Simulated assay, not measured.
Amino acid sequence: MTSELKAETKFPESLPEGQNPVSESDPTAKALGFHQDAKHTDFNLYPERKEKSAKNQVCKHCAQFSKLNENWGKCNIISAGVVSSRGWCSAWSQKS
Rank of each mutant, 00 (worst) to 15 (best):
E24W: 09
E24H: 03
E24G: 07
E24M: 12
S25H: 10
S25K: 14
D26L: 01
D26N: 11
P27Y: 08
T28A: 15
T28V: 15
T28D: 10
T28R: 12
A29K: 05
A29C: 10
A29S: 10
K30I: 01
K30H: 10
K30G: 02
A31G: 15
L32M: 13
G33N: 06
G33W: 01
F34C: 03
F34Q: 04
F34P: 04
F34W: 11
H35S: 13
H35K: 13
H35A: 12
H35L: 12
Q36D: 10
Q36F: 00
K39I: 07
K39V: 07
K39Y: 04
H40G: 09
H40P: 07
H40E: 14
T41Y: 00
D42V: 03
F43P: 01
F43V: 03
F43L: 11
F43W: 08
N44A: 13
N44I: 09
N44F: 14
L45P: 04
L45S: 07
Y46G: 01
Y46N: 11
Y46K: 12
Y46Q: 12
P47W: 02
E48H: 09
E48S: 06
E48W: 06
R49K: 15
R49H: 04
K50S: 09
E51Q: 11
E51N: 12
K52R: 12
S53Y: 02
A54P: 11
A54R: 00
N56E: 15
Q57P: 01
Q57C: 00
V58W: 02
V58H: 06
C59N: 03
C59W: 05
K60I: 10
K60E: 09
H61V: 00
H61W: 09
H61L: 01
H61F: 13
H61I: 00
H61P: 00
C62T: 09
C62W: 06
C62V: 03
C62S: 09
A63R: 11
A63H: 04
A63D: 10
A63N: 10
Q64I: 01
Q64D: 15
F65D: 05
F65W: 08
F65Y: 15
F65S: 02
S66T: 15
S66D: 09
S66A: 15
K67D: 08
K67H: 08
K67T: 06
L68P: 02
L68W: 10
L68H: 05
N69L: 07
E70H: 08
E70P: 07
E70A: 14
E70G: 13
N71W: 05
N71M: 08
G73T: 06
K74V: 07
C75W: 00
C75M: 05
C75E: 03
C75L: 06
N76Q: 14
N76D: 15
N76I: 10
N76W: 05
N76H: 09
I78E: 09
I78S: 06
I78T: 07
I78M: 11
S79H: 11
S79R: 15
S79G: 15
A80D: 12
A80V: 04
V82Q: 05
V82C: 09
V83R: 01
